[in-house]
Design a protein around this nucleic acid. Sequence first.
DNA 1: AATGGCGCTTCCCACGGTGGGAAGGTCAAG
DNA 2: CTTGACCTTCCCACCGTGGGAAGCGCCATT
Lengths: 150, 150
Amino acid sequence: MNIGDAARASGVSAKMLRYYESIGLIPEAGRSASGYRTYGERDVATLRFIRRARDFGMPMERVKLLVGLWMDTQRPSREVKNLALRQVAELEARIAELTAMKQALADLAHACKGDSRPDCPILKDLAQETVTPAHPAHPKRSKTAGLRGH
Amino acid sequence: MNIGDAARASGVSAKMLRYYESIGLIPEAGRSASGYRTYGERDVATLRFIRRARDFGMPMERVKLLVGLWMDTQRPSREVKNLALRQVAELEARIAELTAMKQALADLAHACKGDSRPDCPILKDLAQETVTPAHPAHPKRSKTAGLRGH
DNA sequence: AATGGCGCTTCCCACGGTGGGAAGGTCAAG
DNA sequence: CTTGACCTTCCCACCGTGGGAAGCGCCATT
């Protein structure tokens, strides 16, 4: 199989195949005499596995770990479960974050009549002066790092 | 105010200040004789507004629109509300997506005993051959674009 | 007045993943 | 042998954000 066939068979684009290889997520594919990458059923199975793991929102690093666990047929299932639960926890955290955003914004939107007059509580809220607590003599840098949670 | 002061006052990093200027989200700041950017209270207010909008998860483009609406004191509140509701809808979509992932993965994890034996339903599921429906004579490219919903 | 330390400037690089596309080599069918 | 589909490598883009280098400006303390 050439890369295109493997891509179609696995649902991972050829571009991504090369990328995964370059970051070491998958081993280097074999090469034909003319330099084409060649793949077998095993590779396709791995790629499908990876795609499905990605569908759970896992970052590459985590997928790499998971593939490693998959390859090692002797590892305790505990390790896999732990990894999965970590992923679940992160998804939950992200969901909570987004839900808070959504709720806050929805509340504001609810308070806005949405008619032809310019008055708008949404903008009022956004523009609100979040009161600085009587600025200290030497403000230094306040080190409040940006957790803009993306 | 120099850029550092504006950054501290607004909660937007100096780096981002320059970036926002470069993409035209904020107008070019004035310059001191020696080339330092200078900011006033108005600018800081705008920056705070932007930061808060970002806190609702809005992409830059949307923030830009919103700032525009804010500046235009005559626009109907309807426009603001529409924009806000669009954002809420997108957050909801994203939440639904993540929730589906979370649920599916949590279910799998639940089915995994997580003990010292290697047997693991999570990996079994991931490795599952999603049956290809008897491949057509000329597979062409199947055009199933990757909606890996990030 | 000189020096040191911090702040400012611009410019480039990185991340995570993905796609687009150019320039060129290969392969099989017509 | 030509054509078109495929492959190769390489670079660029996205979106925000941070890191850092090299070179100035500004201010306070010796």
